[in-house]
Design a protein around this nucleic acid. Structure first.
Lengths: 263, 263
DNA sequence: GCTTGTTCAAATGTCAGACATTTATTATTG
DNA sequence: CAATAATAAATGTCTGACATTTGAACAAGC
């Protein structure tokens, strides 16, 4: 296919809205169509003027939006030739824009999801161990606050608030390393963590409530290990949290023993 | 200070060049002045028209360049107020643009350098262990090719080529994890690795040639551990490579035992 | 005196049209 | 048939104008 109908056709209501979409909204819309796999790598992207017509935007706004996609490695543009979609291995997964676009995207490319999850599976136990070595009182307070929130919202019918606290818990672990890069990595992983949690909750709907209790216990174990400054135990407990989530999603068999390289 | 003279004054020769600077060149120039600390966080940045005059560029090109700095979190712009420099903790260190700007920058902000180096110090032993679990024949070939290059260029008077191979060696380790995110993280760390190597070489100028021989041996040990699929040994050997570099730079005392959280 | 509302200047954001440059295709000519 | 020149189509860039937002100065009213 040379041009994708899902990008060319103005099938989204937002395109014909009275208030013109902001530049970021246009960028997000186009980015998500690529991330979802609606347009395959190597396909040619519509021309600027066509996109202008579709989004009812001036060429200027549209070019700014396209520039964001280029900066994230989703598109490649060359004068005279046009715009093409790059392959997934060239997507800059660590670009902050990317994390923003992935957040809340439902039909994400499964291969991409697997890559990100495999990364998190390998990195989070290690970060937990680092946190156990570096956390101070303030970090522990933040961690505890997130955990208390998880406990309080454990039985909510709509488990939206619970997911929020769950994400905050994981983010607090990255923050406790007291290193800028690790902290920012945690923020970038945030959407994938959030999505993982939602998927896990859907998968666990059919289980009884003991499932949630067990999940809480595993999180508590990580927090306690960090509090007691026991890196090894923090690593093990974090592995257990992730393994359970992996089982719920059916991811487990693809990455055996990847999380414990140290023994 | 409200406006920094180093940004306002056209003291760079490139500004008055006959051929107008490309958009990326302008962005790089401005970004490096921020990264080097010439303009402190919170300071107001010159207006668009002043910058147009300084770089002899149209407002369009300049706005595109500024957009890159905004996307990397270096600047914050709001209509009506102007442009201000953000604090270091808001800089998106994992943005690919950032790694491009840092590459080759001499007078980098020491605090920033320390953060990045501390991250690498904690992450690279772990990545080496992962590589020992996942590397295949092709990865080993790439690793070996880089190492051979290091050996061949060990006695070059200008150790430029040697640094190239050294960077390739480290990048090959990240690549061997067979995970997109780890691989891209390795690419992002590339400039800091390159810079670290150059600094190390300068610091080691005064030492005898046995210094270089020892460095080669430590790298070889990492490669052999990966080849033999011994994650634990790979981790230990990688720690040794980094510790030596840290000692040469005087970084060692700031991050005691950060690299070995598992025991 | 203090608050409130208005006006104004300054900065960034946006638009529209024209032109420049690069690239691929097609026609031409030896 | 091959090499070259003309052409069309796409992105890149410039220019000038206008829109929108912000902060401050200032005046009116309690």
């Amino acid at each position: 296919m040379t041009t994708s109908p899902s990008v060319t056709a103005p099938d989204h209501a937002a395109a014909n809205s009275a208030t013109p979409s902001s530049m970021e909204a246009i960028a997000t819309c186009m980015a998500r169509e690529i991330l979802a796999g609606d347009v395959g790598p190597g396909d040619s992207f519509p021309r600027e003027l066509d996109l202008c017509q579709r989004f009812d935007a001036s060429r200027n706004r549209l070019r700014n939006a396209l520039a964001q996609l280029v900066s994230a490695g989703l598109l490649e543009r060359t004068a005279g030739r046009g715009t093409v979609v790059r392959t997934m291995s060239e997507w800059q997964l660590l670009d902050p824009l990317m994390s923003h676009w992935i957040s809340g995207l439902q039909g994400i490319n499964p291969d991409l999801m697997r890559e990100i999850y495999a990364f998190r599976l390998s990195v989070e136990p290690y970060v937990s161990a680092l946190a156990a070595m570096k956390a101070n009182a303030q970090d522990l307070a933040r961690l505890e606050r997130a955990f208390e929130g998880m406990v309080k919202t454990a039985n909510d019918t709509t488990r939206d608030a619970h997911a929020e606290y769950d994400v905050a818990f994981h983010e607090a672990i990255y923050h406790a390393t007291h290193n800028l890069v690790w902290t920012q990595l945690g923020s970038l992983l945030r959407p994938s963590i959030s999505q993982l949690i939602q998927s896990t909750q859907q998968a666990a709907q059919q289980h009884d409530h003991s499932h949630h209790r067990a999940s809480l216990d595993r999180h508590r174990a990580v927090m306690e290990a960090i509090r007691l400054r026991q890196p090894d135990m923090a690593r093990t407990c974090a592995e257990r949290v992730l393994e359970t989530a992996a089982r719920d999603l059916g991811f487990g068999q693809d990455h055996p023993r990847l999380a414990s390289p140290s023994y």
